[in-house]
Simulated assay, not measured.
Amino acid sequence: MHIVLLKFAEQKDQAPSHMDGHNAWLKKGFDDGVFLLAGSLQPRRGGAIVVNGATLEELQARVAQDPFVVAKVVDAEILEISASRADDRLKFLLG
């Protein structure tokens, strides 16, 4: 499992012009069953995505295609989690 941090970067003022592409990229990640949760980092620091079902290499390739990353609206950081405990509702993440 991974967490992707998308922190605003040098071109953050360009976010509105890339929002449609970024939202389409997010939709594809959810449609593919790879993204589990996405949302904003507060206060207005960027975004984060919880990811399951992708190798690090697959995720790196996917993140590199985010229009926000391509346009340097955000800098991406991928954190890997070796989950060992979970609430019963999230036990599927331990497999």
Rank of each mutant, 00 (worst) to 15 (best):
L36Q: 13
Q65K: 06
F8Y: 15
G29F: 02
D87P: 12
E58H: 12
R62E: 00
I49D: 13
V63F: 01
L36Y: 06
D66T: 10
K7D: 11
L90H: 15
L6K: 12
V73C: 07
L59W: 06
D66S: 04
E57A: 01
L6G: 12
R85N: 14
I81L: 08
D31C: 05
P16S: 04
M19K: 13
V50T: 13
D13C: 03
G21S: 13
A61F: 04
G39T: 06
L5Y: 10
A64I: 06
W25Q: 09
G33P: 12
V50D: 04
Q14V: 00
D32C: 05
F68N: 13
E58A: 11
G95Q: 14
K28Q: 11
A54Y: 09
A48I: 08
S40N: 10
A48R: 03
Q60S: 07
V69W: 05
F35A: 04
P43Y: 02
G46Y: 00
I78P: 13
L59I: 11
D32E: 13
G33C: 00
D66C: 02
K7W: 02
L37Y: 08
A15L: 02
L94A: 07
N52L: 00
I78K: 07
V4E: 05
D66R: 05
V50R: 10
K28W: 03
S40F: 00
L26D: 08
E57C: 00
A38C: 03
Q60M: 00
A15R: 14
P67M: 05
R45P: 10
L90R: 15
M1K: 04
K27E: 06
A15V: 06
G21D: 14
E77N: 08
R62V: 01
F8V: 10
D20N: 08
K91V: 13
D32F: 02
G47P: 12
L79W: 12
G33M: 00
F8I: 05
I81W: 09
A48H: 06
Q42I: 11
A24M: 03
V50H: 10
R85P: 10
K91M: 03
F68P: 09
E57K: 04
D20M: 00
S82P: 14
V4M: 03
K7S: 11
V74C: 08
L37G: 04
T55S: 15
H18N: 12
S82N: 14
P16D: 08
A64F: 02
H22Q: 03
S84Q: 15
S17T: 15
E77R: 10
L93S: 04
G29V: 10
K12Q: 14
D13L: 03
V70E: 08
S40M: 01
V51L: 01
E77G: 04
V4F: 02
R45T: 12
G39H: 02
P16C: 00
S17R: 14
L59D: 11
P67R: 09
Q11N: 13
D31A: 06
L90E: 15
A61Q: 14
F92I: 04
D13W: 07
L37R: 12
V70L: 01
